[in-house]
């Protein structure tokens, strides 16, 4: 048998430790994206469009092309770049606060136009870097710094499920992964690969949501946050492929 090696992608090697908190899901999400890019041979031909806040941590964890625009505007910035350079692999990387709250208009209209880009959203059910405020994806009953008694449907509305928002829209690909276990991480990697391949084939808008833990703002240990994901979060936001469309 040939030698088997598990090592991080070339674009991430030789850099200082990234600035995400202990047990943060961004580290795993960022790594699997660049593993897919390296496997596809696109390392020198890809551009990452990062959002601000926790999503930008991963911009400094890689040596490839990257750009960070205004908060919540990672998707339209990526759209503009892709229209001028359709040969390059273009993806946006943002959190749930930016995608479902600050930049919700872009999340909807980019899908309506079926832009040929990939949007990756890391959903940790709160605004992480600003101190753990409630986001549209916060679960009912979840305590955050802006909902200290827990979110209620009467006062704050129901949590957003992007698979329901996009249901019926003619986009190329929609999937939800998770970083809570080895099996789900490998599944998520396959979803990202499929989304990138659809983009390079010109099929249209592909969207991958990655559920991630936020131990710091959930007020838990790292292993406790993984347990909460499996017990509560993934029951409301199940992992799977939701839209698998063909060519334009």
């Amino acid at each position: 048998m040939a030698a088997k090696t598990f090592n991080i992608p070339t674009l991430m090697q030789g850099l200082p430790p990234h600035t995400a908190c202990q047990g943060c899901g961004h580290g795993i999400a960022g790594r699997i994206i660049y593993e897919v890019i390296e496997e596809m041979g696109m390392s020198s031909n890809c551009v990452a469009f990062h959002d601000l806040a926790c999503g930008a941590n991963m911009l400094f964890a890689q040596k490839g092309n990257g750009f960070s625009g205004a908060h919540g505007r990672a998707i339209p910035t990526a759209t503009g770049f892709k229209r001028t350079r359709p040969d390059m692999l273009v993806f946006s990387y943002a959190g749930d606060g930016a995608t479902y709250s600050i930049g919700m208009q872009h999340t909807i209209h980019t899908a309506l136009r079926n832009e040929n880009i990939t949007a990756i959203v890391v959903n940790n059910t709160n605004f992480g870097m600003t101190g753990g405020q409630m986001s549209p994806a916060t679960l009912i009953g979840q305590k955050t710094t802006s909902s200290p008694k827990g979110r209620t449907a009467e006062l704050n509305g129901n949590p957003i499920d992007i698979t329901e928002v996009y249901s019926g829209m003619k986009i190329a690909y929609l999937a939800r992964g998770s970083v809570d276990s080895v099996a789900n991480i490998n599944k998520t990697k396959a979803y990202i690969r499929k989304a990138f391949e659809k983009q390079m084939a010109g099929c249209g808008f592909s969207f991958v949501e990655i559920m991630a833990p936020c131990p710091t703002n959930w007020g838990m240990t790292a292993l406790g946050s993984i347990k909460r994901m499996q017990d509560e979060v993934l029951k409301l936001y199940p992992v799977g492929e939701y839209i698998d469309g063909g060519a334009k």
């Binding site: 598990f6 090592n7 047990g23 795993i28 276990s181 991480i185």
Partner: peptide, 21 residues
Amino acid sequence: VACGSCYTVCPDYAIVIEKED
């Protein structure tokens, strides 16, 4: 057994595994 599980879940890229037979 070099299954790579620890490498896969590590968020801080602290583990590298090499296996030779």
